[in-house]
């Protein structure tokens, strides 16, 4: 790991100041992706700005019938929250399925979505639920937030502060995990909301996407059998040592059916 200067500010104003004063500064949340990246010398920030000391970025609360979760809330906190279990059990299940217990104890919601790993779980949850990302500057709809592989709509000096999740009528997440890393080979988040059915897919393509063919079939009939006649195209899907594009396309449908069945 290259050396850097470490900061642990107490307020968002201090964070903004540190970022504008140090062009090559990077933010540190749970560090479960970023510290391994630093260890491999894939990044060389001049300064690390640790967000763990900022009280306003933490916590889970009910808002407008849905949930608002602070950016530095850990996966373990989301999975273990009574409030999330009651209002949005599918999101608690998703958080519980990330990595292993030690990763969940440190990894954060804001860190995961800002990194936008193509195989991360949270992007499917945000897009599936039609969540809104709140930043230090504005609000961004989930679909506009995730722009490409490891890319988001965030500007250089913009920080995710929280995510607001509206409450769906029913929802579930089904994932086919890589057995070693527990990252999604394919993960599908299905939600039935007042505005229609949403099906968000992670792991299958360079970036989370909505499977509109599946959404249309489920809008007519919200049951696993409704997906029998629908095929998911393999064009543009990921291909690696773990799974071919065709296999991933197949898994999208299988995971979507499992999620619909689990949503009830």
């Amino acid at each position: 790991m290259y050396n850097f200067t470490y900061h642990r500010p107490r307020t968002l104003a201090e964070v903004a100041q540190l970022l504008s004063a140090n062009e090559d500064a990077k933010l540190l949340a749970g560090g479960q992706t970023f510290i391994p990246t630093l260890k491999q010398r894939l990044a060389q920030p001049s300064d690390l700005v640790d967000l763990s000391g900022i009280a306003e970025l933490k916590g889970i609360r009910e808002e407008g019938g849905g949930l608002t979760i602070g950016a530095t809330t850990t996966h373990a906190e989301v999975a273990g929250s009574e409030l999330v279990r009651r209002l949005l059990p599918a999101l608690a299940d998703l958080a519980e399925s990330i990595g292993d217990p030690q990763v969940r104890n440190l990894g954060t919601l804001g860190g995961s979505i800002s990194n936008n790993d193509p195989a991360a779980d949270y992007p499917a949850g945000l897009v599936g639920l039609g969540a809104t990302v709140r930043t230090s500057k504005r609000e961004i709809g989930a679909e506009d937030f995730f722009t490409g592989m490891f890319e988001t709509a965030l500007e250089e000096d913009e920080i995710v502060t929280a995510v607001h999740f509206p409450k769906p009528e029913k929802a579930a997440y089904a994932k086919f995990p890589n057995p070693a890393s527990r990252y999604a080979i394919v993960g599908v988040f299905v939600a039935r909301t007042g505005g229609g059915v949403r099906v968000a897919v992670t792991g299958a393509a360079p970036c989370v996407f909505r499977a509109t063919e599946l959404e249309n079939a489920l809008a007519a009939d919200f049951s696993p059998a409704a997906l029998d006649g629908v095929s998911v195209p393999a064009d543009g899907l990921n291909e690696d040592i773990h799974a071919s594009a065709e296999y991933r396309a197949h898994l999208v449908k299988v995971m979507a059916k499992r999620a619909v069945a689990a949503a009830g």
């Binding site: 470490y6 217990p101 030690q102 440190l106």
Partner: peptide, 23 residues
Amino acid sequence: DTSQCGCCVVHVDGRSVKACTML
């Protein structure tokens, strides 16, 4: 040393963490 094996697990404020993936 890559956050996978868990040989370095310790407790920090009551939570188990991988001490190779924390500064």
